[in-house]
Design a protein around this nucleic acid. Structure first.
Ligand SMILES: [Mn+2]
Ligand SMILES: [Mn+2]
Ligand SMILES: [Zn+2]
Ligand SMILES: [Zn+2]
Lengths: 158, 158
DNA sequence: TGATAAATTGTAATGATTACAAATTTATAA
DNA sequence: TTATAAATTTGTAATCATTACAATTTATCA
């Protein structure tokens, strides 16, 4: 919520992370887009406007640092770019195959107990769903409809 | 189980896929390593010995074709290479952070119901766990022990 | 203020995957 | 069987996210 300098500074020092202007701005950006799932490129595009000479390597370095400090967590639902979000209660992720939109949902991870893994040390649990979001379901229906029309038109023309 | 030519041919024609020597061999390899989670590189390395001049592009093409035909399914637990396995009942995957080994486990996917997603069309569900496998838990304990010893030695030396 | 460690930067390298066009192979119908 | 069209394979180049690395700059603290 609060993304004032003081708050962010405190967050860094709580995790024994040094201060830097870039770090502050990246952390601030993550807080300002709390409900998003950002990738390195997006953060770089946005902040390079504010921080001239910002290096993309710094984005990668910082995201790794934040992840190790558990300030943020990775969402690897796409096998292309890794996305990040602020560490929060663990939740599931839905990705729309059509528009690529990612949606959070609540899942009781503790309820997923696997006796087969009793000898394993489970450190992370991820639940990823894929399909169509409500908006794209509508679009899908419309395009199906217009396809039918096109077929009809094609017939008429022949 | 059975990976005789006849059986594999039938599998292909069932999915309306054309025959080719490469396809047969790739499908055969997938059946022969049913419990594994193979990536393109592994399949290429193994089959290029048997099929001189085999192209890695063919591996990628074929895996995509098989996936579309639902003969195989992708396991994207690692954000590096995509792994594949024969289509089977949906199950969860555990990956060991230390050795990278992937283990299957049973999960009742249908039991994971999310009312938040009632308006969404869910087509796939993936459950990925990460942590340490039994073997690596043992190794971890040993290495922790030797680390302690090393620290002690370092102190002694100063 | 200065020393030291850590962070940032730019550039080059990596590695999995894809794009693409030419050559080859498969399916089919005469 | 043979001709033809369509699908598959191949080799090479390109893509793209990420990492490696060394030089430079910055933060921390005595
Ligand atoms: Mn999320
Ligand atoms: Mn599996
Ligand atoms: Zn959508
Ligand atoms: Zn292991």
């Amino acid at each position: 919520m609060d993304s004032s300098s003081d708050y962010l500074l405190k967050k860094l020092s709580q995790k024994n992370l040094r201060f830097s202007f870039q770090r502050m701005k990246i952390l601030e950006y993550l807080y300002q887009h709390e409900s998003s799932h950002l990738d390195a490129e997006e953060i770089y595009e946005a902040l390079s406007r504010v921080i001239p000479g910002l290096s993309k390597t710094t984005i990668y370095n910082t995201l790794h640092t934040f992840q190790k400090a558990e300030l943020i967590q990775a969402v690897d639902i796409e096998n292309s770019e890794t996305r990040y979000e602020l560490s929060a209660s663990r939740h599931g992720h839905f990705i729309c195959k059509q528009c690529g939109g990612i949606h959070d949902f609540e899942v009781d991870m503790d309820a997923i107990v696997v006796k087969e893994l009793s000898q394993f040390q489970i450190e992370e649990k991820d639940v990823y769903f894929r399909g169509l979001c409500p908006d794209c379901i509508r679009t899908q229906k419309e395009s199906t409809f217009s396809k039918k029309n096109k077929k009809k038109e094609a017939k008429d023309e022949s």
